[in-house]
Write a protein that binds this DNA or RNA. Sequence first.
DNA 1: ATGTGCTTCAAACGTATGTTTCAAACAGAC
DNA 2: GTCTGTTTGAAACATACGTTTGAAGCACAT
Lengths: 225, 225
Amino acid sequence: MAQSDTVDRILDAAEELFAERGFSETSLRMITSKAKVNLAAVNYHFGSKNALIHAVFGRFLTPFSATLEKAFDELELRCDGKPPTLNQTLWVLTESAVRMPQRNEKGISIFMRLLGLAYTQSQGHLRKFLEQEYSEPFSRFMRLLKEATPQLSAVDRYWRIQFMLGATAFTMSSSDALQDILRNKLGVDTTVQEIAARLVPFLAAGMQAQDTLLTPRVENKIPVA
Amino acid sequence: MAQSDTVDRILDAAEELFAERGFSETSLRMITSKAKVNLAAVNYHFGSKNALIHAVFGRFLTPFSATLEKAFDELELRCDGKPPTLNQTLWVLTESAVRMPQRNEKGISIFMRLLGLAYTQSQGHLRKFLEQEYSEPFSRFMRLLKEATPQLSAVDRYWRIQFMLGATAFTMSSSDALQDILRNKLGVDTTVQEIAARLVPFLAAGMQAQDTLLTPRVENKIPVA
DNA sequence: ATGTGCTTCAAACGTATGTTTCAAACAGAC
DNA sequence: GTCTGTTTGAAACATACGTTTGAAGCACAT
């Protein structure tokens, strides 16, 4: 699955175990025994469990954010001057994610699941690490979203972006399980690419929904029982 | 905050701590010391930590599912014969959630966060417990969704429902953090009710999106780099 | 007052965790 | 070969966890 270098073996094992069990639920002993490596190797090479978590994220997030930057560059070049549309922006993002060189066939869903976990599991150190390490591509994406949805108020846009992130992270993070269920229920096979292709129109439509429901005060809009 | 009965004190403390830290990250000692109760009381009254988790969910999910059933009854009665619309169905759900009698002002976000965690944290026992305990209102909701979106293929509907669940679970599970960020960024305060009021139109629009993008083969739709 | 059933309490149990230690093994330079 | 710096190894460390124990406390019927 990878070269037999200790560091990479640890990273591979940790990545997979974190993705399928979460951080707190994965012990160093599980990782080292899956990696066929001595227990002390983790602390020797990484310093601590938290640092290992950071390393796992850094290994796939750094190349990804580079890919993403280039893709955004191309996109803005193609649009010369005019801001890219919402659909274009979303497609560029999913493309970059889907086209990332993967270590194996599970790569994409591990990638997605880890991102989801980073968002969900309230690991303060991880959030801090990601914020200060990858703030640039993130805020660039945010800026593109803003320019693509000028009709939205800042507050509306903020929440809808959260909804998008949620739908994406959640679906992708359990894409394996969801694909299995669908296969059993309807006998249909799906690829991650197809899920992404279904997701983007969903997100774009939600993002651009004009809610006639929400005007001055929200409470009025909830029908009284 | 509550009556001084040991069981309730434990449930209150556990609920709050689980919501803000997750299950594995919350120890019985944290719970019992917050509840000002002896450590052994948890195992005495509930049997185990897992059983306590079930009890926490049962305490708010049982009345909620009863409320929901009644709300669905009313809705179907109001629509006599015709299937309720997507918007109606979604509103009835969020209404029932938002209107639940709360133990305190944080009640709603705790409720939401716990639901999100149940979905996200891969605690096998919890999923099993929830499935066999609350399968009925869940599948009723699914049936209503199906009748409200007859234009969708089964596969499309399946994925879009996952997208909805994801957006909801994710947003609600970190609603506190997201509210804080928004307050710092734009100086705006938000209630869970308002989040729900923004979420519903987003979901409805996404659910009803007609994706001109997806026709015979998906791969063609991803622009080649 | 006495006994009974339920509840609380402090203490301990066994296990698992992240981390450290220090000697052994190893690789490459001289 | 011998030295040097790096990596591995088995074992132990301290701490935290969920759970169990058995005595003490309590309310209440007899």
